[in-house]
Computed example of a mutant assay.
Amino acid sequence: MTRAGGLARRASAVEAARRDAPALLVDAGDALFHAAALGDADTGAAAARARLVLSAMGRMGYAALAVGERDLALGPGWLAREAAAAGVPVLSLNLAAPDGTRPFRGTRIVEVGDERVGLLAVAAAGEYPGGLVASDPLAAARDAAEALRASGATVVLALAHLPEAEARALLRGAPGIDAAVLAHDARPLDAAPVGATLVAAAGERGRALGILTLWPATRGAWADAGAPRKAEAELASIRRSLDLARRRHERVTTEEDRRALRELIANQERRAKEAEARTQVRPSGRLYDSRLLPLTAEVGDDAPLLEEQRAVLDRYGPPPVPPDPDTDVK
């Protein structure tokens, strides 16, 4: 079985997405290394793989990479130097050296279509590789969002490298942020509002491309423009289950099994009616749509990048695999 993911497929998916509408490409961190601390024997191979990732991100036109602890495995100087060489803006508002100097920018404003998107990035408070320390991310994010608005940003997007619970608390305390992309816990999150902020996460390992579409001209509370489409998919799934349950009901021989299946069928019929009703509701408010695009073989590969990817992996091998939050048991 071929795994989903890979830089070449990501590049192909990004190119296709940009044909549909103006796009902003970002990463909320932990993109470069498999661990925050590397063994001496791993350093050369890990650096080569990370340079390939940065080079690919630069060519894809990433607008920002937030700094996570794993991105600092070779130190902040290495990251700043290599990212600059690749043309990848690296952001972190609240990471600082012991002397108070900040190795990375905290914000930037990017033109996307008719919008001026203000980007900010924060990391969870605490100690980081390379002697860096992250201060309170809430105060940094709140002040930065206000400053971005004052500088003309029409949309403010946060890259929050925080555990999900901490990120949600931060966003409730920083109402000037329109949307946030999370990383740290490695789990994908369907886009949904947290207070006034729309929150999403694509998960890690590059298995999928998270696509979040906004309609900046719309106003009001966040509303999922894709809700009718999702209700139609849910309805189709329920109808398949109903068909299976009805056929099973015809074959079972005990009253106990028939009773259980009748209850299941009644429940599924109720769910089908609810889903069908939702297909007719047209969302109103501040509209968004989101989806996770699995980077499977059907996406296709960027041929030149695929060759580079193969060359690096043939020489250095794949990186060790970090724990999978969906399958690994602690």
Rank of each mutant, 00 (worst) to 15 (best):
L162W: 01
V281D: 11
E82K: 05
L159E: 06
D185W: 00
V133P: 06
D178R: 09
A13R: 08
D328R: 00
P304S: 03
L120G: 03
A150M: 10
P89D: 01
A86P: 14
L95V: 00
V194D: 13
A121K: 03
W78K: 03
T107L: 08
V112K: 02
L54Q: 08
V14N: 08
T327M: 00
E234A: 15
T107P: 00
L138A: 15
I177T: 14
A21F: 04
P175H: 07
P89W: 04
A63G: 12
A97Q: 08
A174Q: 03
A140W: 00
V14P: 01
A139K: 12
S55E: 10
L24N: 06
G75T: 02
L306T: 01
L157D: 06
T327Y: 00
R3Q: 13
A311V: 04
E15Y: 07
N94I: 01
A13Y: 02
R19M: 12
D136T: 02
A141R: 09
V14H: 08
E255V: 10
V181P: 04
V194R: 07
L171M: 10
R105C: 03
G6A: 10
R9A: 06
A64G: 04
A217H: 11
L93T: 03
G58S: 10
L24R: 04
R102W: 07
A201W: 00
P294F: 13
A277H: 11
P304Y: 07
E146T: 15
D190H: 13
Q280Y: 11
Q309I: 02
A64E: 01
R116H: 14
R187K: 08
D257I: 06
V67H: 09
E234C: 14
A245W: 11
G106H: 02
A311K: 13
Y62A: 05
E308V: 05
I238V: 14
L138M: 12
A36H: 14
R248H: 14
E234R: 15
A35C: 06
L25T: 04
V26R: 01
P175V: 09
R286S: 06
A17Q: 11
D71R: 13
E298D: 14
R278C: 11
G75Y: 09
D30Y: 00
L54T: 03
L79C: 10
I265P: 14
V14A: 14
R239H: 12
A140N: 08
A125F: 04
L212V: 04
S290Q: 12
P22Q: 10
R291T: 15
F104D: 01
A227W: 06
A303L: 12
A150E: 14
A83D: 05
T218S: 15
A8I: 01
L132K: 09
A169H: 09
A297F: 06
A208N: 01
T107R: 11
E82Y: 07
D302Y: 01
A11D: 04
A141S: 06
R3D: 07
P103M: 05
G106D: 03
E250G: 13
G44C: 10
S135H: 05
T213Y: 04
D40Q: 15
D40Y: 02
T154L: 13
G173W: 05
